[in-house]
């Protein structure tokens, strides 16, 4: 188990290394465009060259990469062009905001998804199963920006019960979180539910469930002790991987509701060609994603005795 974890974290570090190379190649290999983006399009050629020289951009790419990477590892992401402050000053508070939004959404979506998935999978092809399946297909077919429009049309304009933006101008306000969370939950619960349903339905077909029933166990005990444990191993991984998808959705939702989170930060950065900010956001996003994947793998191994003891 320990070897496995060491390996898994090793793979994670390697992934991050390759991702950093990729990000560097995409955004920094062309020094001309770096200068243009940092100094703006209306600067003269001499100004840019001077800037490049002063900031070490005339060094070979490999040196620049290593220096860049070194700075990254110690948390120095450079200065944001747009906010004129160190990137880390804007990044961390925004990330905390996103963690709140994403965390609540993930929690609710998982609870709904798991519950409905288990109920649907218990009796495959039954009325409940069909109901849940149809509901899941319907809601996962609506993109986040579309449900944002639908929901604000209903709850902001037609029946004004909720605020239309979530800027949190006057401090943290839970009411402003309702719409963004709803949008994320609507898109995400269906996926969790479908995976849970499939897993549950598969477990219900297995021979060991038949064994449990024919042992004379009460139905509730068969479900609780025999089915759930096995059926929830796969959805656990799905939920952890869902964080990766959630990060995408979060960008849309934050933009749609002007929520001051990490996603809208990345969005603004990309609109303003704020490359150091983009780089930092990308690296942090990938780090979060890779970290959850690693935890998912370790958790899966822990939950599954067939892997744990072999």
């Amino acid at each position: 188990m320990l070897i496995f974890m060491v390996r898994r974290f090793g793979t994670m570090a390697l992934t991050m290394l390759v991702v950093s190379i990729l990000v560097f190649l995409l955004l920094e290999i062309n020094v001309e465009s770096v200068a243009t983006k940092v100094l703006g399009p209306y600067t003269s050629q001499e100004q840019r060259e001077l800037w490049l020289e002063r900031n070490g951009y005339t060094d070979p790419a490999i040196w620049r990469y290593l220096r860049w990477l070194g700075n990254f590892v110690v948390g120095d992401f450079g200065d944001s062009v747009r906010f004129k402050v160190p990137v880390s000053d804007v990044l961390w508070p925004r990330l905390a905001n996103t963690a709140i939004l994403g965390g609540i959404a993930l929690f609710i979506a998982s609870i709904i998804g798991l519950t409905l998935g288990v109920i649907a999978g218990m009796r495959e092809g039954g009325a409940r199963d069909r109901g849940v399946s149809v509901g899941a297909v319907l809601t996962t077919s609506v993109p986040e920006f579309a449900s944002a429009v639908f929901l604000s049309g209903l709850l902001v304009f037609t029946w004004p019960v909720l605020p239309g933006t979530s800027g949190m101008a006057d401090g943290f306000d839970l009411v402003q979180l309702v719409l963004p969370v709803m949008v994320l939950v609507i898109y995400d619960w269906g996926y969790v539910a479908r995976m849970t349903r499939a897993s549950m339905a598969e477990v219900m077909m297995t021979h060991y469930i038949r064994t449990a029933v024919l042992k004379g166990l009460p139905y509730g005990q068969v479900i609780r002790k025999h089915a759930l444990r096995n059926a929830l191993i796969a959805p656990f991984t799905v939920i952890m991987l869902q964080i990766n998808w959630l990060l995408s959705g979060v960008i849309v939702v934050e933009v749609a509701f002007a929520y001051k989170g990490f996603g809208s930060l990345l969005y603004e950065a990309s609109l303003n060609s704020d490359i150091y900010l983009i780089e930092a956001c990308a690296m942090v996003a990938v780090f979060v994603a890779v970290m959850t994947q690693t935890l998912a793998d370790i958790g899966y191994t822990y939950l599954n005795p067939r892997i744990r003891f072999s």
Binding site: R210, T211, H226, R229, P305
Partner: peptide, 12 residues
């Protein structure tokens, strides 16, 4: 049953 492995719950 026919297949003992499949008849036993793998996670208990």
């Amino acid at each position: 049953y026919q297949e003992p492995m499949a008849s036993l719950n793998p996670s208990m």
